[in-house]
Protein backbone atom coordinates (compact mmCIF):
# COMPACT_ATOMS: atom_id res chain seq x y z
CA UNK A 1 0.00 0.00 0.00
CA UNK A 2 1.45 3.38 -0.75
CA UNK A 3 0.67 6.72 0.73
CA UNK A 4 -0.69 8.46 -2.34
CA UNK A 5 -3.14 5.65 -2.89
CA UNK A 6 -4.39 5.77 0.69
CA UNK A 7 -4.69 9.51 0.42
CA UNK A 8 -6.72 9.35 -2.77
CA UNK A 9 -8.87 6.64 -1.23
CA UNK A 10 -9.87 9.07 1.50
CA UNK A 11 -11.45 11.29 -1.11
CA UNK A 12 -13.89 8.65 -2.30
CA UNK A 13 -17.43 9.81 -1.67
CA UNK A 14 -18.47 6.22 -1.19
CA UNK A 15 -16.72 2.88 -1.34
CA UNK A 16 -18.16 0.00 -3.31
CA UNK A 17 -18.69 -2.17 -0.26
CA UNK A 18 -21.09 0.45 1.09
CA UNK A 19 -23.22 -0.01 -2.03
CA UNK A 20 -23.82 -3.68 -1.40
CA UNK A 21 -27.42 -4.60 -2.16
CA UNK A 22 -28.06 -1.67 -4.51
CA UNK A 23 -28.13 -3.98 -7.52
CA UNK A 24 -31.33 -5.60 -6.28
CA UNK A 25 -32.99 -2.37 -5.19
CA UNK A 26 -35.94 -0.67 -6.79
CA UNK A 27 -33.86 1.85 -8.71
CA UNK A 28 -31.64 -0.81 -10.24
CA UNK A 29 -34.57 -3.03 -11.20
CA UNK A 30 -36.49 -0.12 -12.69
CA UNK A 31 -33.52 0.92 -14.77
CA UNK A 32 -32.90 -2.62 -16.01
CA UNK A 33 -36.54 -2.96 -17.05
CA UNK A 34 -36.44 0.38 -18.84
CA UNK A 35 -33.28 -0.45 -20.74
CA UNK A 36 -34.25 -3.93 -21.84
CA UNK A 37 -37.79 -2.89 -22.80
CA UNK A 38 -36.63 -2.33 -26.37
CA UNK A 39 -34.55 -4.76 -28.42
CA UNK A 40 -30.84 -3.99 -28.37
CA UNK A 41 -29.88 -4.38 -32.00
CA UNK A 42 -29.60 -3.34 -34.71
CA UNK A 43 -28.81 0.05 -33.30
CA UNK A 44 -31.66 2.38 -34.19
CA UNK A 45 -30.91 5.59 -36.02
CA UNK A 46 -29.71 8.32 -33.74
CA UNK A 47 -32.84 10.41 -34.02
CA UNK A 48 -35.21 7.74 -32.79
CA UNK A 49 -33.04 6.32 -30.08
CA UNK A 50 -34.84 5.86 -26.87
CA UNK A 51 -33.56 8.46 -24.51
CA UNK A 52 -33.60 7.78 -20.86
CA UNK A 53 -34.20 10.82 -18.84
CA UNK A 54 -34.05 10.89 -15.14
CA UNK A 55 -36.66 12.85 -13.39
CA UNK A 56 -35.51 15.66 -11.23
CA UNK A 57 -35.47 15.15 -7.54
CA UNK A 58 -33.39 13.89 -4.76
CA UNK A 59 -32.25 10.77 -6.49
CA UNK A 60 -29.15 9.76 -4.70
CA UNK A 61 -29.47 10.74 -1.12
CA UNK A 62 -27.24 10.63 1.88
CA UNK A 63 -24.52 8.49 0.38
CA UNK A 64 -21.93 9.06 3.05
CA UNK A 65 -24.41 9.19 5.88
CA UNK A 66 -26.74 6.32 5.07
CA UNK A 67 -25.41 4.73 1.88
CA UNK A 68 -29.00 4.75 0.66
CA UNK A 69 -29.05 5.37 -3.05
CA UNK A 70 -32.13 5.41 -5.14
CA UNK A 71 -32.36 6.07 -8.82
CA UNK A 72 -36.07 6.05 -9.20
CA UNK A 73 -37.41 8.13 -12.00
CA UNK A 74 -37.01 6.85 -15.49
CA UNK A 75 -39.12 8.33 -18.18
CA UNK A 76 -38.72 7.10 -21.70
CA UNK A 77 -39.64 10.16 -23.66
CA UNK A 78 -41.36 8.41 -26.50
CA UNK A 79 -43.76 5.59 -25.89
CA UNK A 80 -43.19 5.72 -22.21
CA UNK A 81 -43.16 2.25 -20.76
CA UNK A 82 -41.77 3.06 -17.41
CA UNK A 83 -42.55 5.83 -15.03
CA UNK A 84 -41.70 6.46 -11.47
CA UNK A 85 -42.13 9.23 -8.99
CA UNK A 86 -41.84 9.25 -5.26
CA UNK A 87 -45.33 7.79 -4.87
CA UNK A 88 -45.57 5.11 -7.53
CA UNK A 89 -43.52 3.09 -9.96
CA UNK A 90 -45.02 1.83 -13.18
CA UNK A 91 -43.42 -0.66 -15.51
CA UNK A 92 -44.46 -2.80 -18.40
CA UNK A 93 -44.49 -6.54 -17.99
CA UNK A 94 -45.50 -8.14 -21.28
CA UNK A 95 -49.07 -7.14 -22.01
CA UNK A 96 -49.59 -5.60 -18.63
CA UNK A 97 -48.60 -2.56 -16.71
CA UNK A 98 -47.51 -3.25 -13.21
CA UNK A 99 -47.84 -0.38 -10.78
CA UNK A 100 -46.26 -0.52 -7.37
CA UNK A 101 -47.39 1.98 -4.80
CA UNK A 102 -44.32 3.25 -3.04
CA UNK A 103 -46.00 5.77 -0.80
CA UNK A 104 -49.55 4.80 0.15
CA UNK A 105 -50.05 8.16 1.87
CA UNK A 106 -49.15 10.26 -1.15
CA UNK A 107 -51.49 12.63 -2.94
CA UNK A 108 -53.51 10.39 -5.27
CA UNK A 109 -52.69 12.69 -8.19
CA UNK A 110 -49.16 11.33 -8.12
CA UNK A 111 -50.56 7.91 -9.00
CA UNK A 112 -52.76 9.29 -11.76
CA UNK A 113 -49.71 11.02 -13.18
CA UNK A 114 -47.91 7.70 -13.65
CA UNK A 115 -50.80 6.13 -15.54
CA UNK A 116 -51.25 9.28 -17.62
CA UNK A 117 -47.63 8.96 -18.70
CA UNK A 118 -48.50 5.70 -20.45
CA UNK A 119 -51.85 6.98 -21.73
CA UNK A 120 -54.15 5.32 -19.23
CA UNK A 121 -56.87 7.05 -17.27
CA UNK A 122 -56.83 5.50 -13.87
CA UNK A 123 -57.61 6.94 -10.49
CA UNK A 124 -56.23 5.09 -7.58
CA UNK A 125 -57.50 5.94 -4.15
CA UNK A 126 -55.97 4.38 -1.12
CA UNK A 127 -58.30 4.06 1.80
CA UNK A 128 -57.48 3.12 5.39
CA UNK A 129 -58.38 -0.49 6.13
CA UNK A 130 -57.90 -3.07 8.82
CA UNK A 131 -54.62 -4.99 8.81
CA UNK A 132 -55.75 -8.03 6.84
CA UNK A 133 -57.15 -5.88 4.01
CA UNK A 134 -54.04 -3.80 3.43
CA UNK A 135 -53.02 -4.05 -0.20
CA UNK A 136 -56.35 -5.50 -1.24
CA UNK A 137 -58.84 -3.89 -3.52
CA UNK A 138 -61.91 -2.66 -1.72
CA UNK A 139 -63.79 -1.23 -4.70
CA UNK A 140 -63.33 -1.03 -8.42
CA UNK A 141 -65.15 0.71 -11.21
CA UNK A 142 -64.86 2.21 -14.66
CA UNK A 143 -66.66 4.20 -17.26
CA UNK A 144 -66.27 4.02 -21.01
CA UNK A 145 -65.33 1.07 -23.19
CA UNK A 146 -62.92 -1.36 -21.68
CA UNK A 147 -61.20 -4.34 -23.25
CA UNK A 148 -60.42 -5.80 -19.90
CA UNK A 149 -60.94 -4.77 -16.38
CA UNK A 150 -58.04 -3.76 -14.23
CA UNK A 151 -56.80 -6.60 -12.16
CA UNK A 152 -55.39 -5.36 -8.95
CA UNK A 153 -53.24 -7.92 -7.27
CA UNK A 154 -53.52 -8.25 -3.60
CA UNK A 155 -50.48 -7.32 -1.57
CA UNK A 156 -50.11 -11.03 -0.98
CA UNK A 157 -47.89 -11.61 -3.96
CA UNK A 158 -45.41 -9.11 -2.63
CA UNK A 159 -45.76 -10.05 1.00
CA UNK A 160 -43.95 -12.62 3.02
CA UNK A 161 -46.21 -14.90 5.03
CA UNK A 162 -47.55 -13.16 8.06
CA UNK A 163 -46.57 -9.70 6.90
CA UNK A 164 -49.54 -7.54 6.19
CA UNK A 165 -48.57 -3.94 6.46
CA UNK A 166 -45.20 -3.16 4.94
CA UNK A 167 -45.35 -4.89 1.59
CA UNK A 168 -45.93 -2.96 -1.62
CA UNK A 169 -49.40 -2.57 -3.04
CA UNK A 170 -49.43 -3.74 -6.63
CA UNK A 171 -51.92 -3.10 -9.42
CA UNK A 172 -51.77 -4.85 -12.77
CA UNK A 173 -53.76 -3.91 -15.78
CA UNK A 174 -53.80 -4.65 -19.45
CA UNK A 175 -51.76 -2.26 -21.61
CA UNK A 176 -54.77 -1.76 -23.90
CA UNK A 177 -57.04 -0.71 -21.06
CA UNK A 178 -59.06 2.15 -22.54
CA UNK A 179 -61.74 2.94 -20.00
CA UNK A 180 -61.53 5.59 -17.32
CA UNK A 181 -61.09 3.43 -14.27
CA UNK A 182 -60.83 3.83 -10.57
CA UNK A 183 -59.70 1.49 -7.90
CA UNK A 184 -59.85 1.77 -4.16
CA UNK A 185 -57.13 -0.12 -2.45
CA UNK A 186 -56.61 -0.64 1.22
CA UNK A 187 -53.67 0.94 2.97
CA UNK A 188 -52.59 0.78 6.59
CA UNK A 189 -54.53 3.21 8.75
CA UNK A 190 -52.92 6.04 10.59
CA UNK A 191 -53.32 5.94 14.37
CA UNK A 192 -56.95 6.60 15.28
CA UNK A 193 -58.14 6.55 11.67
CA UNK A 194 -61.35 4.59 11.06
CA UNK A 195 -61.17 1.69 8.63
CA UNK A 196 -63.15 2.05 5.45
CA UNK A 197 -63.57 -1.64 4.87
CA UNK A 198 -66.11 -3.79 6.64
CA UNK A 199 -63.80 -6.66 7.37
CA UNK A 200 -64.31 -9.30 9.98
CA UNK A 201 -62.27 -8.69 13.09
CA UNK A 202 -61.80 -12.45 13.52
CA UNK A 203 -59.70 -12.94 10.40
CA UNK A 204 -56.01 -13.71 10.51
CA UNK A 205 -54.08 -10.61 11.40
CA UNK A 206 -57.09 -8.85 12.89
CA UNK A 207 -57.83 -7.80 16.46
CA UNK A 208 -60.04 -10.78 17.34
CA UNK A 209 -58.14 -13.37 15.36
CA UNK A 210 -58.98 -16.84 16.59
CA UNK A 211 -62.05 -15.80 18.58
CA UNK A 212 -65.28 -17.59 17.64
CA UNK A 213 -67.59 -14.70 16.81
CA UNK A 214 -69.97 -16.29 14.32
CA UNK A 215 -71.53 -18.99 16.48
CA UNK A 216 -74.20 -16.86 18.13
CA UNK A 217 -72.39 -16.83 21.46
CA UNK A 218 -73.56 -14.48 24.17
CA UNK A 219 -72.22 -10.95 24.45
CA UNK A 220 -71.14 -11.83 28.01
CA UNK A 221 -68.84 -14.51 26.58
CA UNK A 222 -67.29 -12.34 23.89
CA UNK A 223 -66.69 -9.20 25.99
CA UNK A 224 -64.02 -10.74 28.25
CA UNK A 225 -62.12 -11.95 25.19
CA UNK A 226 -62.23 -8.45 23.69
CA UNK A 227 -61.23 -6.98 27.04
CA UNK A 228 -58.18 -9.23 27.27
CA UNK A 229 -57.03 -7.81 23.98
CA UNK A 230 -57.59 -4.24 25.09
CA UNK A 231 -60.36 -3.62 22.58
CA UNK A 232 -63.16 -1.12 22.88
CA UNK A 233 -66.51 -2.53 21.74
CA UNK A 234 -69.40 -0.88 19.94
CA UNK A 235 -72.54 -2.58 18.67
CA UNK A 236 -74.84 -2.84 15.70
CA UNK A 237 -78.10 -4.68 15.95
CA UNK A 238 -78.96 -6.97 13.05
CA UNK A 239 -82.60 -7.00 11.94
CA UNK A 240 -83.71 -9.90 9.85
CA UNK A 241 -86.79 -9.61 7.64
CA UNK A 242 -87.98 -12.99 6.31
CA UNK A 243 -88.22 -13.48 2.52
CA UNK A 244 -91.30 -11.98 0.98
CA UNK A 245 -91.34 -9.07 3.40
CA UNK A 246 -88.10 -7.55 2.14
CA UNK A 247 -89.88 -4.49 0.84
CA UNK A 248 -90.78 -3.49 4.37
CA UNK A 249 -87.25 -3.14 5.62
CA UNK A 250 -84.16 -1.39 4.39
CA UNK A 251 -80.94 -3.24 3.75
CA UNK A 252 -79.99 -5.97 1.38
CA UNK A 253 -80.95 -9.59 1.17
CA UNK A 254 -79.14 -12.03 3.38
CA UNK A 255 -77.75 -15.31 2.10
CA UNK A 256 -81.06 -17.15 2.46
CA UNK A 257 -83.10 -14.44 0.83
CA UNK A 258 -83.92 -12.73 4.10
CA UNK A 259 -83.37 -8.97 4.15
CA UNK A 260 -80.85 -7.67 6.66
CA UNK A 261 -80.44 -4.27 8.15
CA UNK A 262 -77.98 -2.93 10.68
CA UNK A 263 -78.49 -0.19 13.19
CA UNK A 264 -76.00 1.21 15.63
CA UNK A 265 -77.09 0.64 19.20
CA UNK A 266 -75.52 1.97 22.35
CA UNK A 267 -73.84 -0.47 24.71
CA UNK A 268 -76.22 0.22 27.60
CA UNK A 269 -79.11 -1.14 25.53
CA UNK A 270 -77.35 -4.42 24.77
CA UNK A 271 -77.94 -7.12 27.35
CA UNK A 272 -75.35 -9.76 28.35
CA UNK A 273 -77.53 -12.46 26.83
CA UNK A 274 -77.69 -10.88 23.37
CA UNK A 275 -76.15 -12.99 20.66
CA UNK A 276 -73.10 -12.16 18.57
CA UNK A 277 -72.98 -13.10 14.88
CA UNK A 278 -69.83 -11.36 13.75
CA UNK A 279 -67.30 -8.71 14.71
CA UNK A 280 -66.00 -5.96 12.45
CA UNK A 281 -62.76 -4.07 12.63
CA UNK A 282 -63.58 -0.38 13.24
CA UNK A 283 -60.20 1.15 13.86
CA UNK A 284 -57.08 0.17 15.72
CA UNK A 285 -58.20 -0.93 19.20
CA UNK A 286 -61.93 -1.02 18.47
CA UNK A 287 -64.38 -3.60 17.12
CA UNK A 288 -68.07 -3.60 16.32
CA UNK A 289 -70.15 -6.61 17.38
CA UNK A 290 -73.14 -7.46 15.20
CA UNK A 291 -75.82 -8.66 17.59
CA UNK A 292 -79.44 -9.78 17.87
CA UNK A 293 -81.50 -9.60 21.06
CA UNK A 294 -82.04 -13.34 21.22
CA UNK A 295 -80.79 -16.62 19.77
CA UNK A 296 -81.46 -17.57 16.15
CA UNK A 297 -81.45 -21.03 14.59
CA UNK A 298 -78.50 -20.08 12.42
CA UNK A 299 -76.19 -17.17 11.68
CA UNK A 300 -78.21 -14.70 9.61
CA UNK A 301 -75.09 -13.26 8.02
CA UNK A 302 -73.50 -16.50 6.92
CA UNK A 303 -75.73 -19.33 5.87
Amino acid sequence: MNTTEETVSLLARVHDDALSGQATGTGARTLLAAITATPPAPAPPRASRMRLRLTVGALVTGVAATTAIVIPGLLAEENATVYANSAIELERDGDEYVARIKDPFADHRRYTEAFSAVGIKMDIRLVPVSPSAVGKMTQIGSSGGSPGRPQPLSGGSECEDGETTDCPIVVRLSVDYSAHGWIKIGRAARPGESYQNAGSAARKGEALEGVAVREGRKVSEILPEAGERGLAVIYSVVRVTPPGKAGEAGGGPGPSGAALSFEPISADKVGPGWRVWDAEAVKAGAVRLLVTPGPLPKNPLYD
Binding site: A12, R13, V14, H15, D16, L19, S20, G21, Q22, A23, G27, A28, L31, A34, I35, L52, L54, V56, A58, L59, V60, T61, V63, I69, I71, L74
Partner: peptide
Protein backbone atom coordinates in the same frame (compact mmCIF):
# COMPACT_ATOMS: atom_id res chain seq x y z
CA UNK B 1 -24.30 -2.42 -11.10
CA UNK B 2 -22.88 -1.53 -7.71
CA UNK B 3 -19.41 -1.02 -9.16
CA UNK B 4 -20.65 1.26 -11.92
CA UNK B 5 -22.89 3.13 -9.50
CA UNK B 6 -19.90 3.62 -7.21
CA UNK B 7 -17.81 4.80 -10.13
CA UNK B 8 -20.42 7.39 -11.09
CA UNK B 9 -21.20 8.59 -7.56
CA UNK B 10 -17.52 9.13 -6.81
CA UNK B 11 -17.08 11.26 -9.91
CA UNK B 12 -20.27 13.26 -10.17
CA UNK B 13 -21.14 16.41 -8.33
CA UNK B 14 -24.81 15.67 -8.02
CA UNK B 15 -27.04 12.67 -7.55
CA UNK B 16 -28.84 13.53 -10.78
CA UNK B 17 -25.62 13.40 -12.73
CA UNK B 18 -24.59 10.11 -11.15
CA UNK B 19 -27.96 8.60 -11.96
CA UNK B 20 -27.69 9.83 -15.53
CA UNK B 21 -24.25 8.33 -16.00
CA UNK B 22 -25.33 4.93 -14.71
CA UNK B 23 -28.45 4.90 -16.86
CA UNK B 24 -26.65 5.97 -20.00
Amino acid sequence: YERILGYAVRRCHSPEDAADVVAE
